[in-house]
Design a protein around this nucleic acid. Structure first.
Lengths: 202, 202
DNA sequence: ATTGACGTGTGACACGATGTCATATACAAT
DNA sequence: ATTGTATATGACATCGTGTCACACGTCAAT
């Protein structure tokens, strides 16, 4: 977490710094980003940066968290809009991610192509994974389970794990392969379809 | 790829260097590894390192590739041993990965907890993903398709994509969560079972 | 008005890591 | 011996990080 001094900053100065950081993390992934670039761009002295953040990662995860919070809300809305159909909702959500604009897109690209477990964890936490935690319950309640083959909450949990693995992987593929939009959506839809249908007659 | 001089090295010196590198990459993930540590451990001067490798990554991917080649062979054997049952084979394979020993285990741990797309690509290439390439065909030929619901090679390809996404993710979870062996296998088996069964009545 | 306490701003600096380069060395071929 | 080619070496320039001693500004107490 950023230090108190960061939040005490006058709004314009803070936003300026945030923008500089975002720009750097859109340019290159976390481990290649340089504080020097951020402070040069934000026109603040080196010492000040460390007045606000512990280090590079601190700034990065601050940005990441705000992104994730936004997506989390968007996901819940999408799920409702699709009347609890998790599969249709996922496809909507997937297309939204890969349709992001410029700087956001670059940020996401660097994010997904360099998806460390630590980063994935931050994302998944809000996406309803991890434990049978509050987030998972919130999502679980919105899901229409009528046509689902899930026996209990455990299975539902694992189903969500699988769906998110597959979704992450498809996003990575899209960003890495520079696939055209249509092809990316088609691939993802195919995989979602296969997940619904199942792989084998048991 | 390492330079020719590396391969021209007398075997003992080369193995010594390889071992030092392996040790460093078992200690910390790629982006935190330091060449200084490797050369100190291998007792070679700095300049020599650059005689053999382009940089840190070059050394890392050399090691990674040899690991991957071994696993690739092991996977094919496992698939045969299970008479083409891809699901049982995956569970065998999964348990083999998480049962690795000491230095290998640490290397794998750092690998999976910091799975960049570039790294994943190297791994997946040999695991039969990516294109409908030679590797995929080799695996495809070994798979018993009798009880599979796959309509064509395309669907089979996507099925393999999904399986590998889920497998990767389970390995990461295991390494990150320090799950006990039994629990990890149980989780993975559940997810494989759900994949076979399918999520929904369409 | 002066003092002191506190939060904040600043940039010089020590440290450590990287990649290069000029020079040294080994060894083979003539 | 001489020349050529491949390899070895470590000092060095460069760059990025995190720290620290000091400067500054504000505000409340005197």
């Amino acid at each position: 977490m950023p230090k108190i001094t960061f939040f005490n900053l006058p709004e314009d100065k803070r936003e300026n710094l945030v923008h500089a950081a975002k720009k750097e993390f859109a340019r290159v992934p976390l481990y290649q980003a340089s504080i020097s670039n951020i402070i040069k761009d934000a026109k603040i002295p080196r010492g000040s940066f460390y007045q606000y953040f512990d280090d590079k990662e601190d700034a990065f995860f601050y940005l990441l968290n705000s992104h994730v919070s936004a997506y989390k809300m968007y996901f819940l809305e999408t799920l409702q809009k699709n009347n609890g159909d998790i599969f249709d909702a996922m496809i909507d959500f997937y297309t939204a991610i890969i349709t992001e604009e410029r700087e956001n897109l670059q940020f996401l690209r660097n994010l997904f192509l360099n998806m460390t477990h630590r980063i994935e964890n931050v994302m998944a936490r809000s996406f309803g994974e991890n434990d049978l935690n509050e987030n998972f319950r919130k999502i679980s309640n919105l899901i229409n389970k009528e046509r689902l083959n899930m026996q209990d909450e455990q299975e539902l949990f694992h189903m969500m794990q699988i769906i998110s693995s597959v979704t992450f992987h498809n996003i990575v593929k899209k960003f890495a392969g520079e696939l055209p939009f249509d092809e990316a959506v088609h691939n993802y839809s195919t995989e979602i379809y296969l997940l619904k249908k199942g792989f084998a007659s048991i």
